[in-house]
């Protein structure tokens, strides 16, 4: 994964919040995705302005973690990319 690349979520996503996660409707491909709270936070940070290597630190701050969750964020970004939600 290129950590210097600022990932960006695709256009046309509609985010619906639930108690235990989020339902994302992707209009372009008429697909529905189910994401947990952390994945949506990562997705929100994928605005094309934030480099991938900054995201673990931001997530660590958001959840008051001792260490930035680099491996988990990398896995999450891979999944979001595989699902076609970011590029």
């Amino acid at each position: 994964m290129d950590w210097s690349h600022p990932p960006k979520q695709i256009e046309g996503l509609e985010v619906n919040q639930l108690a235990d996660g989020y339902v994302i409707y992707e209009a372009n491909r008429d697909r529905v995705h189910y994401l947990n709270h952390t994945a949506v936070l990562v997705l929100e940070m994928c605005n094309g302005q934030v480099a991938a290597d900054e995201i673990p630190g931001l997530i660590g701050q958001a959840f008051d973690l001792a260490e930035p969750p680099a491996a988990e964020v990398a896995e999450c970004l891979d999944k979001l990319r595989d699902e076609g939600l970011i590029r």
């Binding site: 509609e14 619906n16 919040q17 639930l18 108690a19 339902v23 409707y25 209009a27």
Partner: peptide, 14 residues
């Protein structure tokens, strides 16, 4: 449309 469908169901479940 389908976006409104998802929205309706989510609002029901929420």
């Amino acid at each position: 449309g389908r976006a409104a469908w998802v929205r309706d169901v989510c609002s029901l479940v929420r």
